[in-house]
């Protein structure tokens, strides 16, 4: 199995009024053409980890970062490659389905127009191709000029996927992409993701254990900025190596526990062993 993306000793600290270490020495690998789910309680650094994978957290002020992220073998922090190109190769779909203030057509064509000189005919073909890829073409082909924001949230989230896919990224980051959707829309997005992971490397944050079981090939469990366990999905749910993982997947309160610092350290060692 080839590694598409990996982090090495990634530590991220928010240095605002109150200093918070959002990620602490996280080293984790994401395999090619697999879907890796990141799970963990709220505020444990899932989004920070995800955004650090294409340096999107840099739009916030006061962020300190050490360690490195490798896209294939290429580092994305210590590199001369321009940031927009890195972000093209590692696409990002936000949690809240977000239409750009453009038509449905131009939402998909947005990245294409930025990155290349396509003729109108080529654009038409590509827009159709990516809308088909996310199973949206049938639903919207008669109103491509309508504002993207007029779609239902489920359709909108698939439009966001199409927009990200259109620039042919190597990796797709999906931040809880189904959490804002009703069950039926969520199912259609899940179906789409399932098809997409044949072709793309996908990293997805989810709060749903069941969703992770259904979709993921690999699961990464973060707790308070530490990597607790990263493992094959079956292994992770059937035979978790860490005590904390066991508690978390069985739904026992891991949040707000008062624990000694000894126990804090233990999961990190487990994680290191896994890797």
């Amino acid at each position: 199995m080839t590694t598409a993306l990996k982090t090495e000793n990634l530590t991220i600290t928010y240095t605002g009024k109150r200093e918070v270490t959002a990620l602490n020495d996280v080293s984790v690998e994401f395999n090619e053409n697999e879907l890796t789910a990141i799970i963990g309680p709220s505020g444990c650094g899932k989004s920070t980890l995800m955004k650090s994978l294409n340096r999107l957290h840099e739009i916030q002020p006061n962020v300190d970062i050490s360690g490195e992220v490798y896209l294939g073998t290429q580092p994305i922090y210590a590199t001369d490659e321009p940031l927009p190109e890195i972000r093209r190769r590692v696409g990002y779909v936000p949690q809240k389905p977000t239409a750009l203030p453009l038509s449905i057509y131009n939402n998909v064509a947005y990245g294409l127009k930025i990155h290349g000189n396509h003729s109108k005919a080529e654009l038409d073909k590509l827009v159709k191709k990516y809308l088909q890829k996310v199973n949206l073409w049938e639903e919207v082909n008669d109103r491509l000029d309508a504002p993207g924001a007029e779609l239902s949230t489920g359709q909108l989230q698939r439009l966001c996927l199409a927009r990200s896919l259109a620039v042919e990224p190597d990796v797709l980051l999906c931040d809880e992409v189904t959490s804002a959707l009703d069950p039926i829309s969520a199912e259609s997005v899940e179906e789409t993701l399932k098809e997409l992971k044949e072709e793309y490397t996908i990293v997805m944050i989810t709060h749903s254990m069941n969703q992770a079981k259904r979709l993921a090939d690999k699961v990464v469990f973060l707790y308070l900025g530490n990597l607790v366990e990263a493992n094959d999905v079956n292994q992770f749910f059937e035979k978790p190596e860490s005590e904390r993982t066991k508690q978390f997947i069985s739904g026992q309160g891991v949040v707000g526990e008062d624990e000694s610092s000894d126990e804090e350290k233990q999961p990190a060692t487990t994680a290191a062993q896994v890797l």
């Binding site: 696409g91 977000t98 203030p101 947005y110």
Partner: peptide
């Protein structure tokens, strides 16, 4: 404006000015 707009645009490789 929500940050999602900025993230969505930057996330497909647009520059800040674009």
């Amino acid at each position: 404006l929500p940050d999602e707009l900025r993230e969505s645009s930057l996330g497909v490789g647009a520059t800040k000015w674009e």
